[in-house]
Amino acid sequence: MQSKTRPIQKFAQAVSKCTTEAAVYGQCIVADYNTVYKNKCAKEFMKLKDCYLVRLPEPLSVPTKPTLLMEQVAAKKRGW
């Protein structure tokens, strides 16, 4: 069971490569953590998310990069 990498570990690896973006987002929240509301730091979060999505290792079944980028665009439109 452990020979396979769990999806969460790939996720964690990708996130660990985005320390600068994470720090910017973290500072945005921590600067005033008593008044946090929805999408307060949406811009910073999207930068962080873009960073990790690019660094995420591609799963074998998903075909090529263009679709991944299109998914990103679609995801942005959906307001993730």
Partner: peptide, 12 residues
């Protein structure tokens, strides 16, 4: 949430 949590935990 996990992504945001990781960043906030580290900052805070």
């Amino acid at each position: 949430i996990l992504l945001a949590n990781e960043a906030i935990y580290r900052a805070l």
